[in-house]
């Protein structure tokens, strides 16, 4: 019995490892057609579901110089009006077309990747100062009578499903933002701000916990030396809990990066590189949420490719936070 249970527990623990490997390989296999087709150029390609003439895109993959030559040649033969010759020429190049230009669909990940990063940056710029304010308020300023209930409220807010933030953002927050800043109701800006509001309670709660690890005796010594509250926060608490605070911020960043529902209503879900902050665009999770249903073949594979990129990105960021900043006491 003893042996069986020990083996069983080892097995369940290893399950975590197996699942992670499973997620990675499954994503990789499903993304394989898109990886083979587009390679690493996927990351810098801003086209999504765009039909491109077959010969052009083939040439482009090989060399851009020959592409120019090719198109000039084509236009020359066009102006010659020698239809027969053109037909023959095309038949020679491609297999499955008559007299129309053959097309293939190109998928590139640049727009969702940029959208993900920009919306996360906006969220962090908005949320970090406010979360710090809340954490300082809860840890240092408020009397216990206020800080305990407010602290619990903040923790409860962190548990509210993110779809509710998204819905509130769409119906109540977006109109106000578009009135104030102009532009569309659904935009990078609204998505980023609502994302910031969503991670606020989580970030505030874990930052406060980090600040609270500062021993009272250090703070009291500083006060005894005549330091003001701000000086204690700046010179005692921040240096002492710096590592934990940075770790908390990165952890929240990881959360914002992979968030789907708070952003899905608000970012616009269009494959456009945003020129202004008030333009609509798309992020990786939203691309997956919106397009997965109707995607098939290469399109679906490209979505898996995006998912793989997101998975690797958030895995990297979170493990960085874990190993450099949040080494917890092992006891």
């Amino acid at each position: 019995m003893e042996k069986i249970f020990q083996k069983l527990s080892l097995l369940s623990a290893s399950l975590v490892f197996i699942i992670l490997i499973g997620i990675f390989t499954t994503l990789f296999i499903s993304a394989k057609p898109a990886i083979d087709e587009f390679g690493f150029g996927f990351i810098t390609d801003a086209r999504w579901n765009t039909e491109v003439p077959l010969n052009q895109s083939n040439e482009k993959e090989k060399q851009t110089d020959t592409l120019k030559e090719d198109t000039t040649q084509n236009s020359v033969s066009d102006s010659d009006d020698d239809l027969l010759a053109e037909d023959e020429d095309l038949m020679g190049d491609d297999e499955d077309l008559d007299d129309e230009v053959a097309t293939k669909t190109v998928y590139g990940g640049l727009v969702p990747i940029v959208g993900t990063i920009l919306s996360t940056v906006i969220a962090m710029v908005f949320a970090v100062p406010i979360a710090m304010g809340i954490a300082i308020f809860l840890a240092e300023m408020a009397p216990k009578k206020i800080s305990i209930p407010v602290g619990i409220a903040i923790e409860l807010l962190a548990a509210i499903p993110s779809i509710i933030f998204g819905m509130w953002g769409l119906f109540y927050f977006a109109p106000i933002i578009s009135e104030t800043f102009g532009g569309y109701q659904v935009s990078l800006l609204t998505a980023g701000l609502v994302l910031g509001i969503m991670i606020l309670p989580f970030m505030a709660a874990i930052t406060r916990d980090s600040m609270k690890t500062t021993p009272d005796i250090l703070k009291e010594s500083a006060y005894a030396l005549g330091a003001t509250k701000f000086e204690v926060i700046k010179d005692v608490i921040f240096p002492y809990s710096k590592v934990g605070i940075i770790g908390s911020i990165i952890l929240s960043l990881g959360r914002a990066l992979g968030e789907t529902m708070a952003v899905a209503f608000l970012i616009g879900a269009v494959y456009n590189l945003p020129e202004k902050i008030t333009d609509p665009t798309i992020s990786i999770p939203v691309a997956m949420a919106v397009n997965f249903g109707e995607a098939a073949g290469l399109g679906e594979s490209a979505l898996f490719y995006l998912g793989l990129i997101l998975f690797v990105l958030s895995f990297g960021i979170i493990s960085f936070a874990k190993f450099y900043f949040l080494k917890r006491n092992k006891g």
Binding site: I23, L27, G254, G258, S314, I318, K322
Partner: peptide, 16 residues
């Protein structure tokens, strides 16, 4: 690993 997995994007788990 389990700590990291706790923060894995939920949509990716859906895709998996």
């Amino acid at each position: 690993l389990s700590d990291i997995m706790m923060s894995a994007p939920s949509i990716v788990i859906g895709a998996f």
